[in-house]
Design a protein around this nucleic acid. Structure first.
Lengths: 337, 337
DNA sequence: ATGAAAGCGCTAACAG
DNA sequence: CTGTTAGCGCTTTCAT
């Protein structure tokens, strides 16, 4: 492996000079600089990031810990974050973790290794305790979720997200406004303290307020945000032979699977059954019928996440929880009855 | 920052003992081990990865360089690779790079920083020269693409992919078998030496062999694999008022956008126009009509990629280019005329 | 403008 | 079983 030392001896200068050149420092003679550059290129020199990180000081880079790249919503959000970061002087260190890994731990490790200035979490859980996040000694922002089930006081964490309960409430109300009463809900990851739970609460609240009883037979669960399983879950719902004229799917993925399942079972959407989703995936605008959905403001979520994190890092702001609103896109998948 | 040294002094042992405990080495007394563990936990100790990487030797970990997480095909492939890796003793270091970054460079950097045993590239380019890859001093496998436009001799690189030209040829032939003659092609990233180019060649060969003249008006380009732009491109194609009864879209993304555009322009799919894609995205099976597509064997591509890389690392195999076949999924988007 | 030298936090011989 | 020590490759004072 070619190191800075090899370059130094080959170029006839000291390692410090090489380091200066590599880091584009001004205090190097043109002669030395050119010589070093030439040798480095000739030898195909590639700096060792680990060594740099170890020796360096704070590194103007911020980390992004993401779980579940399989979820298209997150991959779309990722693009937005990446874009927003480009406008700053900070660079992005991305760490994709497995579904079972602990994101806080991963964040702490990345922070030490790369001397990060801050962290962004995507796809984390909703129930942090002060103890859990105590390993984090740099600012962080939870992107697209908040600490709804945890007991973090507002001063010690930041987040940018929608209000899941309220938006679900809004979606179901839209359905009710269109005359629907028998409204099924399709939800995922049925553990407690999940996004499913929050959106389920909104569903319940909407029904209750409008005087509609919750029918347990219309609450259909699936194991995760997976098309094939959501499809089967919908088939299962249909097979219960319980009347319903609308389905509130708690994500676009589930909604799309539901539409397909209904269609294959001989039901027209929206003729026989209306379907509404939440998220606003790119693809959901291109299916037939266009999905009616509450669109998360992806661009703004990304922009505000980065903005907030940098403000906290630069001490221009303190921790806060930013809540943004979705936009109802009226597609072709619901109708009034 | 809490370091191994702090743990050592606090626990009353030497750093090496702490290191041994952290790395789960057997040669430590239970007393010492427990003491260290206790202190480490109390102090919230988190090892510094950079330091470990720098000090350590070869690290049973392999790197995955991926470009374009926005592309759902790659995010689906990512899941498969991750899954396949789980069965091995190697761990995965993932590096997501921007669309403009140089993947070889990124791979080389990651390899040095983490002392990788091998690399997997996804979303790389098709035209490497021996010089370009000379910076890589560890085995690597190109996943889902091969060096079709480069001049690498087969002994110096590995790949696992489908034969893009041949599969496109097959797709177009399927259309011709169904009686179509006026077949449009929708392709992306129109630079030379791309996947578009390869699949375009297959399209041309199929037409030629079956005695159909290529009509330039039916060759519709879009700038990238983006739904909105593919939609517009299809509208553009339609507006040329050039007759066609089928569309060969070189990816499922493009195919789905085309179906929507045709539908919105008053054409039935497959009633008026048949559409076929390539890739086999999960979602394409759940749209209406189900997309007819040549399904890439994602599971096998992932499995073979990992298998091949490990075999090369462990010297059980030498470089090779594995070519797998797609499977034609007859959906509902094409019909015979 | 340049070089020598002291670490960054950790691992891995090497001695005991 | 445990401690001492020499680096890993790089950055950064501090002299010169």
């Amino acid at each position: 492996m070619i190191t800075i030392k090899d370059i130094a001896s080959e170029a006839g200068v000291s390692v410090s000079t090489v380091s200066r050149v590599i880091n584009n420092r001004p205090d190097v003679s043109e002669v030395a600089r050119n010589k070093v550059l030439e040798v480095a290129h000739k030898l195909n020199y590639i700096p060792n990031e680990s060594a740099r990180d170890l020796a360096g000081t704070q590194s103007d880079s911020i980390g992004l810990i993401m779980r579940g790249i399989g979820n298209p919503f997150f991959s779309e959000m990722f693009g937005v974050i990446e874009q927003s970061m480009k406008k700053t002087k900070y660079s992005l260190a991305i760490n994709q973790i497995s579904s079972t890994a602990n994101e806080i731990q991963a964040g702490a490790e990345l922070a030490r290794a790369k001397r990060l200035s801050g962290l962004i979490f995507m796809g984390g859980n909703f129930a942090y305790t002060p103890e859990m996040i105590s390993v984090l000694d740099i600012p962080f922002v939870c992107c697209t979720y908040s600490n709804k089930f945890g007991d973090l006081s507002p001063e010690i964490f930041s987040s940018v997200s929608i209000d899941d309960e309220a938006e679900a409430y809004r979606a179901v109300n839209a359905l009710i406004d269109y005359g629907h009463k028998d409204i099924a809900i399709l939800l995922a990851d049925t553990e407690d303290q999940s996004i499913s739970e929050l959106r389920y609460r909104g569903y319940c609240r909407a029904l209750k307020e409008r005087g509609i009883k919750i029918n347990p037979n219309l609450v259909q669960k699936t194991t995760n945000f997976n098309l094939a399983e959501a499809y089967q879950a919908t088939i299962h719902l249909i097979n219960k032979e319980q009347e319903f004229t609308a389905v509130f799917a708690i994500s676009d993925i589930l909604a799309m699977a539901a539409i397909k399942a209904l269609h294959n079972s001989g039901y027209q959407v929206p003729g026989d059954v209306s379907v509404i989703g939440i998220d606003g995936l790119n693809i959901s605008e291109f299916i037939i019928p266009t999905l009616t959905s509450l669109i998360q403001p992806k661009l703004e979520i990304g922009r505000r996440t980065v903005e907030l994190l940098l403000d906290i890092i630069e001490q221009k702001s303190s921790n806060q929880q930013i809540v943004l609103e979705t936009e109802l896109r009226l597609g072709e998948s619901i109708r009034s009855i």
